[in-house]
Design a protein around this nucleic acid. Structure first.
Lengths: 344, 344
DNA sequence: TTGTAAGCGTTATCAC
DNA sequence: GTGATAACGCTTACAA
């Protein structure tokens, strides 16, 4: 009933060669943009490709070049906005550069799970790795596995052997904390992220820097897990001992859970307690009160990660890209309205 | 300084063969679990592999088998919880089944962008496709490109040539709407998702079914874009004409934006207006008031999508998997507390 | 149970 | 400029 467009096997470079009346090698040259080819010949080849709907065979190419043109992403997300956005941007950027992306998501942050995920990526022959996961642990495992693949990760301190993205999380956290200090707060608590994440560590560091610089009392930080549920839990505990007037949460989700708990405890945010978050996720401005937070350019982070990794793969010198500094976004939950603070 | 663990080239099947003193073919047999091999021989081969740290070459295998062991995911997300969670689950499930996942994210939902993304996946030689994107448009484009790859998509109606996941979005939406009706609402508005998404279409359908069944007035639905910002915008418009007492939003983000707008307009949720969402994203229970919503098992959806696609790839008969019915979660924003409704 | 031969579709290397 | 020839590492025949 239907015409026979294909004869079983997909057209190869030799089929194109036959039709264009050249050697298969010439077809290969056209494919790879080799300079010394007569225009007329090239055109004939291109026409033949078009006619045959020729598509190069990735496996064959990978076999002979031993390059997979694939980069791996090691992620550890349960659907959070930040990582998801960065990963999407990584895919876009990679695609644009002619690369494929393979993501392995960590089921747990145990060494075993990390080994599993890395093995999977290695099996896939990834040429490089972008780590969006508990970096501290991942680095350990990487070292232990003796895997020799170039990788890129988020980093805030300059000390590392591999290439790292320069997102100044410390500066962002410092700004957030300073904002609270400027509002007149003296007793500020930090609800931190898991400390095996570089971001979490850096945000705590920025927090402490600001606190110490202002010569304020250092409250023991609470170590959270990035989730809103944990934020709620922490908020419940916190509202028992009210020896603080403000909280800097390491991310917005925890901040939102926190505010919920404060509400439940009869505390008014921001009248009684000020809360600042980090990330500026899309709902941040729609909760009540709108959350003051630190804006991150997640897509830009993804783009830069790819650029960095590709330059590494190409053996280019480290291009000193400017640092991304997350920007404080004041939206009201801890805005200047609240000069009259209630200290406990 | 360091020992020389590898001599440039990665060990191949032949290196293993030489060390185990068998033919390379025997090694291949061990690799593929061929039955007729003497145990002693197999062990020798395995030992040799171990000693050489042999890893099979994916490209070579793919070249000769013309199977990439890769499935493609066409997504269209900007970091939303639902799709991101499903995609993560897809990766987990695929990995467990020995498959790799390649995701192409739609920059826009224009035909050109869809063609781009699909071409990328085809280039990658994906064996099958999971569509988590504006399916209506994607199907059109797929048909137009004459691509012959098995694909799976979310689907609520039974009418389709390809395999579809049975997630009964209609039932979920109907339950949500019925909940509002049970509370005594007569004037209910639907804030819908983009109609080229099957989910959006199905949720509107479920809404309308419930409305019609209860013989209520049908308000013209508002067509949104899934974002909280749009929800806010819609809420602002809606609060001008207050000819309704409840809104069923097609997803939680829009519902949250909506509530924000109502708050700004001086309307109290749920005293003045009831709002129900869809998805049950992690922040849903932490906003004020907690959002009544319809819970979805995003990870389960991802897992089933993979199972379905793989069974298709293996040519297995369609296993009639049970339908997933999203469950209504009542959390308070429109709970029975609000018997006294204010109608406009 | 094992080995030998051929070929998958491409690029690299050397001729002409 | 272009063409032959030899890999790349594996699996699918077929033979022993």
């Amino acid at each position: 009933m239907s015409p026979e467009p294909q004869k079983g096997r997909a057209p190869s470079i030799r089929d194109v060669a036959r039709l264009a009346d050249v050697s298969h090698q010439t077809v290969s040259r056209v494919l790879n943009g080799h300079p010394s080819i007569r225009d007329e010949t090239r055109q004939r080849v291109l026409d033949a490709m078009e006619a045959l709907k020729y598509r190069p065979n990735r496996a064959a190419r990978a076999l002979v070049t031993s390059r997979s043109r694939t980069i791996g992403v090691l992620s550890a997300t349960t659907g959070e906005y930040g990582p998801s956005s960065s990963i999407a941007a990584i895919e876009d950027a990679a695609r644009e550069a002619g690369y494929f992306v393979n993501t392995a998501n960590l089921a747990a942050s145990t060494p075993a799970a990390i080994v599993d995920a890395l093995k999977h990526l290695v099996l896939q022959d990834v040429e490089g790795l972008i780590v969006m996961a508990p970096q501290v642990r991942v680095f350990d495992v990487l070292a232990g596995m003796a895997i020799d693949i170039p990788y890129v990760s988020l980093q805030s301190t300059g000390q590392s052997d591999h290439r790292a993205l320069a997102v100044d999380q410390i500066a962002g956290a410092r700004a957030a904390t300073q904002h609270l200090i400027d509002l007149g707060h003296h007793e500020i608590v930090h609800l931190a992220g898991p400390q095996d994440w570089i971001e979490a560590e850096a945000r705590m560091r920025g927090f402490l820097d600001a606190i110490i610089e202002a010569d304020l009392r250092t409250h023991p930080p609470i170590l959270g897990d990035w989730t809103a549920d944990f934020g709620y839990y922490a908020g419940r505990e916190l509202s028992r001992y009210r020896d603080f007037s403000a909280v800097f949460a390491a991310n917005d989700l925890m901040a939102i859970g926190l505010m919920h708990a404060f509400r439940d405890a009869g505390l008014d945010v921001p009248r009684d307690v000020s809360v600042v978050g980090f990330d500026d996720i899309p709902v941040a401005q729609h909760v009540s009160p709108p959350l003051t937070t630190v804006h991150q350019e997640f897509r830009e982070v993804g783009r830069r990660a790819v650029a960095l990794l590709l330059s590494e793969l190409r053996g280019e010198p480290v291009s000193q890209s400017e640092e991304i500094v997350p920007a404080l976004v004041v939206r009201g939950s801890s805005g200047p309205v609240h000069a009259a603070l209630v200290h406990y």
